[in-house]
Design a binder for these strands. Sequence first.
DNA 1: TACTCGATGTATCGCCGCGATACAACAAGG
DNA 2: CCTTGTTGTATCGCGGCGATACATCGAGTA
Lengths: 196, 196
Amino acid sequence: MAKTDVLSLAILGMLAEQPLHGYQIRKRLGSELGPFRALSYGSLYPCLKRMVASGLIAADETDASAVRTAGSRRSKIAYGLTAEGESRLAEELANAGASSWDDDTFDVRFSLFTKTDSATRLRILEGRRSRLSERLEEVAEGLQRVRERHDAYTTELHRHGLERVEREVEWLDRLIENERSATRGDNPSTAPAGNN
Amino acid sequence: MAKTDVLSLAILGMLAEQPLHGYQIRKRLGSELGPFRALSYGSLYPCLKRMVASGLIAADETDASAVRTAGSRRSKIAYGLTAEGESRLAEELANAGASSWDDDTFDVRFSLFTKTDSATRLRILEGRRSRLSERLEEVAEGLQRVRERHDAYTTELHRHGLERVEREVEWLDRLIENERSATRGDNPSTAPAGNN
DNA sequence: TACTCGATGTATCGCCGCGATACAACAAGG
DNA sequence: CCTTGTTGTATCGCGGCGATACATCGAGTA
């Protein structure tokens, strides 16, 4: 089976561009997904090991600084995609299963949008939107009960949470509309609006 | 040292109202903090064990359904605060250390606001606000680099992230203003605005 | 020249949260 | 009667995280 988890997926996407060191992967992941979602070494290196073990990536230890036949110099390991890794990435990008609209998966998938076709992009955006819609109703409904049973602070917490979800839905609507108009062939631009 | 983690804190606050079963704790925590932050049994029961072991809570197994001298009926364990648990909760509520404005801690602290004094509330709100301000600058700065180096989707992801943080800052500002005017003694209401 | 500091780089350890899962008692309704 | 749902306790393995250790290297500075 070997379902690809979010972390592996993000790494696959990253290494598709070019081979990287573990350190660089961590740094770029932090800069691409934002300062949140930082990813610690305690997750990274074990994950890389797993991926090597399952043949998705390969470790290149041609030590750039292997000076002078010196003793045990093992440092600087560049990781790159194998053929299997590439096909797995492609497969995963095309599939975009129901888990793609989870809170912690969505932004990784979104950051890989340039590597996907418009149909898949739309599927993910709409999937995420419907997931949030469900939550919207759920929370709006619960908000009433919270108002009755709990204090004003708790209520305010829920109200703000609801507002946040509403914002994200609006955001998704804009993206979806944008994606649709691009598909309609108005112009070949694959770019979202970027209004400011 | 025994620093109290978020989970324990939430449980302490919950049990301060009344003794509860593990099952009820889980359910209420889900309904108070929102449908997110659900808390699985795999975290709950071990945590309860830890808390019992450190004397913060006590297990009351007076089996409500201990019918008829029957065999080994051990079910329905009600957990309640010990004296030590109460003082720990009070201490923790008053302290409100620097960790109180972490992403995953803040909402728990916020949901306990009715149990705290106005000064502590303000300290937490302002702490959270300044934490977000830092992040705001950080992200706004990084956004420029993302625009140059990355694709439009990644840029949009960051722009939206920035917007979300801005929203929360505005929200906090409203709460802070509200808390201040309450402290000024305009009226004894401890309630936030709740505008809608 | 030597010293220190910060970035780059690999790696592991223990803690603990999570999802899945198992089990049991009991109430309601078809 | 039998299935379904709720209440209830509990554990297992997986894996992410924060802390930490250690090594190398370039640049600035005393």
